[in-house]
């Protein structure tokens, strides 16, 4: 983690702010409020789908690339998704070289755990010829600036990028024993992915006796333990992970899960709304990317 050293006094200030329940947090948010979020899809034209998410200072770019490959023998009739996270040195000099790898693998394991079930993404539809050919979705997350709450931001970015993903249609021609795959040339002859049940991660940070969502970098420095939850729009939980060097009381875990579920459902629906809104504006929309 991109650690910044904060003084004890500053940490106490944040802690007291949350404890007093008065407008509560250092930036005036309530305990269950997210910071301002901006999302844009289709920013990298070399990909099958991409999204850029900016959550306050956290900046994440996700690119999805669909490539043809062989399905794994354990799942011969479905495609694969592979997560790769790269912490760019742009975010902080500590990530230079291999410095960001630890954080990167942490994020990618949580993401792949969230998607590691049959309900979240229909991998069966990615299969072309069982045991022989399938689509492999490489989901590459590029972390460009970290301002806290990276896991939530990464998962939202991934979901948006998957929404934006378009996979070319293929037709299988059988000639004698040879299977031949024909890729459609038409850029509009594509398949979309159904992401209605894909999860978003909600991280709840325990600070003092209370828990907050969307912790900023400062708050993360004060946090002893946090609970990450993959929540789907239905309110089911696709992954759960406690993190940090503190421990948690069972009661507070149930409290946190309750909050997480509630927030996660709202997050999922509002994300989908935003994405659909963006889609409606269609081709007229000009991609701004990083130019704004």
């Amino acid at each position: 983690m991109a650690d910044v050293n904060y003084s004890e006094a500053e940490k106490t200030f944040i802690l007291h702010g949350i404890q007093d329940k008065f407008p509560c947090r250092e930036d005036g948010r309530g305990c269950e409020d997210y910071r301002h979020m901006e999302i844009e899809t289709g920013v990298v034209s070399n990909t099958s789908g991409s999204a850029r998410l900016r959550l306050a200072n956290t900046d994440i770019l996700v690119g999805v690339k669909a490539e043809l490959g062989v399905p794994s023998p354990e799942k011969p009739d479905s495609g694969c998704i592979e997560f790769f996270v790269d912490c760019s040195a742009n975010a902080t000099p500590e990530f230079e070289g291999r410095g960001g790898e630890e954080l990167a693998t942490e994020i990618s394991t949580v993401l792949s755990r969230c998607y590691d079930n049959s309900g979240c993404l229909d991998l069966k539809s990615l299969c072309i010829i069982p045991k022989q050919q399938c689509w492999i979705l490489y989901i590459d997350v590029l972390l460009l600036e970290c301002g806290g709450n990276l896991f939530d931001a990464a998962s939202i970015g991934v979901k948006a990028a998957l929404y934006n993903t378009r996979i070319p249609n293929v037709t299988v021609n059988q000639e004698d024993d040879e299977m031949e795959i024909e890729l459609s040339d038409d850029p509009y002859d594509v398949n979309r992915l159904d992401i209605s049940s894909s999860p978003c991660i909600v991280t709840l940070s325990k600070i003092g006796h209370y828990h907050v969502v969307d912790a900023s970098q400062k708050e993360e420095a004060c946090c002893l333990a946090r609970l990450m939850m993959g929540v789907t729009a239905k309110g089911t939980i696709s992954a759960l992970k406690k993190e940090g060097w503190g421990s948690l009381n069972p009661e507070s875990i149930f409290d946190m899960m309750e909050t997480g579920k509630k927030i996660g459902q709202v997050l999922n629906t509002s994300l989908l709304n935003v994405l659909e809104e963006e889609e409606k504006s269609g081709n007229k929309r000009k991609t701004v990317g990083f130019l704004k």
């Binding site: 070399n46 991409s50 690119g63 999805v64 690339k65």
Partner: peptide
């Protein structure tokens, strides 16, 4: 001190 890196999705082939 410089570091040049390319996003894994930046090129045509991953």
């Amino acid at each position: 001190n410089c570091q040049y890196s390319m996003a894994t999705f930046s090129t045509g082939e991953r």
